[in-house]
Design a protein around this nucleic acid. Sequence first.
DNA 1: TAGTAAAGTGGAAACGATTCCATCCGGTTT
DNA 2: AAACCGGATGGAATCGTTTCCACTTTACTA
Lengths: 334, 334
Amino acid sequence: MATIKDVAKRAGVGLGTASRVIAGNGPVSEAAIRRVRKAVEELKFRPSHAARVLQKGQSQTIGVFVPLIQGSFYTPIVHAIYTAVRASGRQMVVEFGQTPESEREDALAGVEFLAERGCDGLIMMGTALRPADIARIAELQPRFVLLNRSIPGLQERCFNPDHRAAGAAAARALYEAGHRRLAVIEGRKTAHDNTLRMRGFEEALRKCGIDPGQIPRVRGDFSPDSGRAGARELLEGGTRFTALFCANDEMAIGAISYLREVGVDVPGQCSVIGYDGIDLSALTVPALTTVLIPWREVATNALHHLLNLCYGSELPVTRDIPAQVLWRKSVAHI
Amino acid sequence: MATIKDVAKRAGVGLGTASRVIAGNGPVSEAAIRRVRKAVEELKFRPSHAARVLQKGQSQTIGVFVPLIQGSFYTPIVHAIYTAVRASGRQMVVEFGQTPESEREDALAGVEFLAERGCDGLIMMGTALRPADIARIAELQPRFVLLNRSIPGLQERCFNPDHRAAGAAAARALYEAGHRRLAVIEGRKTAHDNTLRMRGFEEALRKCGIDPGQIPRVRGDFSPDSGRAGARELLEGGTRFTALFCANDEMAIGAISYLREVGVDVPGQCSVIGYDGIDLSALTVPALTTVLIPWREVATNALHHLLNLCYGSELPVTRDIPAQVLWRKSVAHI
DNA sequence: TAGTAAAGTGGAAACGATTCCATCCGGTTT
DNA sequence: AAACCGGATGGAATCGTTTCCACTTTACTA
């Protein structure tokens, strides 16, 4: 592999001049530019990334941690981040968790790995990391932002949708469609975002004169399978309901799959509303009515903030992107 | 940030000794090890990845190109690659294409980017790259493997499932379930793997005494939407059929969504068989019968081969992992 | 015409690790 | 007792860039 020294020699210029031409900064004459360019061509010179990183102290790489790659939820978020990273001419390295149970360890190990490899900044998603963990990470790599978290004292670096408002929107949607007897499949207990959306849901219900305490409520883990299990549990519980709120779309898909399997018509006998607005929600039968969370936008804004932090750019950053109900077919008006 | 020099000084040893302790090779005394370890702790020393890469000429990074990140098809493959890469203690950098139309340009640009950034090896998936492109890539980075491609002269580095056999399996499954009047939604014309599976499908049909020429056949682009469109087109075509073969699961999901929407019972009036065996196929209503392609295994084997190529390891590599029909609910026996 | 500012240039130093080489030392062999 | 061996060690050289500094040339000003 040719080095910049070879290029300089071949072009008949000094090392500094060659570097200036190739990096494209500093004063150089037209003639020098031409000769260096020619030498680069002839030698098929490609600058060594490692040498640049070593010299400049920046790797032009952003590290991403995401709890899971399976399923339909995180993928579009990763994609949004990828797009923004690439648009800024930089590179992305992703680490994934293996299972929800090991999320904390996976996140810690993944982030360590990313920091070790010299990422200029980190963007992390997930709810497993504790404040102490985050403090530790800050030592490793002080440039980071958090997605879907809200840590006191770090608000500046936390980017999340307004789950409380979104949960309330779900409740209002069901109420306005005429439903009074509701049921809920909520998400993991440890997931703070689940707590928030449930709180919003309950608050809105109370305002409508419905006592949230009376509502049958089971817990899933955000997976489609747990949605199936949740639906069964609810049905076996015996309490009647005309509408079901699922704390995410994947559970809603599972729930619908179970309900239809046992002969419950959706939305004829039971309406279902989801949460997140994943792409897949358009393709279920019936198409899923859901609370559309602007995940892509939130992620992009978080990344912009990170990029600004790392490279001093001034990409626009917005924080308030509202959620909205996406009306499709799975909620009937009664 | 502390450097290895600082560590050596603090531990009262030479540069070489410090390096040997940290890298964990070469002869060092117990005492030296202890003192260096202590100094590392105290100074919170983290070796500079860039410096290592520069010196060793290896980045311990594998580059991955995948045509798309949206949808459910590529994600598990990326995950399988990720798992294997991490298991070998190395890092993965992924590049994605944006749209199927721009796949070729995206792949070229992505691979260039990856090579530039000093990946030790490349694993590429997709059907858009032409042999000439691949020759060009070989110049940039001679260490690469191809997923789902078969290039003459590069068989060693090509890893694909046996689409022909898998297509035949789909045909046999439908035939054995009693279906005689079939229809097909096939994939993109440019996708060679689609051609192969269709060929296998037709050959098997012919062996069963069915003339493939008589079968109504429409073309999609592997997306769920195109599956919906395909199903409509087929229905409007007027030819009667009792079973539908879709060239991938996502189109099958789209097709089912359309069929049920217009009141065609699946599998009562029309059976549907998919292809690939994506996770999602278990969750449709009815659960999708499909040809399970062992994508994860194929990808893992390809990656092992690449790892062996790059690092001289001897990970096991198998090439023949058969596809099989996954019987669920969407194909009725008549 | 002399003086000065600016543009252009070459090469040394620096980034932070690994590796090679020369040296040293204690113990074993002859 | 001399020779030898191998483990342990320190430090110079190296990887391929960028950047800084000193220097020359050119162009412009007074």
